[in-house]
Design a protein around this nucleic acid. Structure first.
Lengths: 120, 120
DNA sequence: TAATATAGGTACTTTAAAGTACCTATAACA
DNA sequence: TGTTATAGGTACTTTAAAGTACCTATATTA
């Protein structure tokens, strides 16, 4: 374990949930455990490689659990770990803020949020 | 104004506060307004260019105010705007989570947080 | 007169993040 | 037999983020 120096504690948070995809993945997982293929459908823009890569990193940081079912074709599910749930309120706040921001910028959210996620 | 499509609202949040520096800058500004040179001291790793660039973007998104004093040498201060304060609780949570995470990973925060920020 | 402090601009380069393409395994089923 | 579904690995390439180096202005002070 290499001891890094941080100038402010938020840097440690960003190491864990920073980047383009991790918050998105985690927000989806706040709504319950998901299979890899479900996550892919929820995130049309992500590639297989990036999805697995981000999931591996989140797993390594203890944020999510990987549940492997021994069957063919393979089935794997991901869920927030107990530690991961300590991020839940932050993730919800980030989502809510985004929604309000969209409303502020565009008037209503229906104009810019994909139908797929509004019909939930 | 180009209408973007988001697959999840948190993407809108990340557009505003994502990246390596914005959360750090904003966390510092939650403790009150700061001059450019103060921010540079608080963030030894950031370059002049990145700092100004990030500040410009945050200003463009309405998150911070830029206060210009007409004097030489120049004096400019940055503060959270009224809209920016809607992020305050998120920023505090992100800092607190990071601190807890550091403690979890390293046992105590003194080992990895720079002295400069602990002696506050 | 020349140095200092402050804030910032700009062209260019480097690095890290992300993406593309192609590969694996295997049971079930048509 | 060969196609499908699922999850994932890997080498390589592209792109965007970040960094480097060097430039500006001007009142004040030594």
């Amino acid at each position: 374990m290499i001891k890094k120096k941080y100038n402010i504690s938020v840097e440690a948070t960003l190491e864990v949930i920073g980047g383009k995809w991790k918050c998105v993945i985690l927000c989806h997982l706040t709504h319950g455990k998901k299979r890899t293929s479900e996550l892919k459908k929820l995130m049309p823009g992500i590639t297989q490689k990036m999805l697995t890569q981000q999931l591996r990193e989140l797993e390594a940081d203890g944020i999510i659990n990987r549940i492997i079912y021994n069957q063919v074709p393979p089935k794997v599910e991901y869920e927030l770990s107990e530690y991961g749930t300590s991020l839940e309120s932050i993730l919800n706040s980030l989502c809510n803020w985004g929604e309000q921001h969209i409303i502020k910028e565009y008037g209503d959210k229906f104009a810019v949020l994909e139908d797929s996620i509004l019909n939930k």
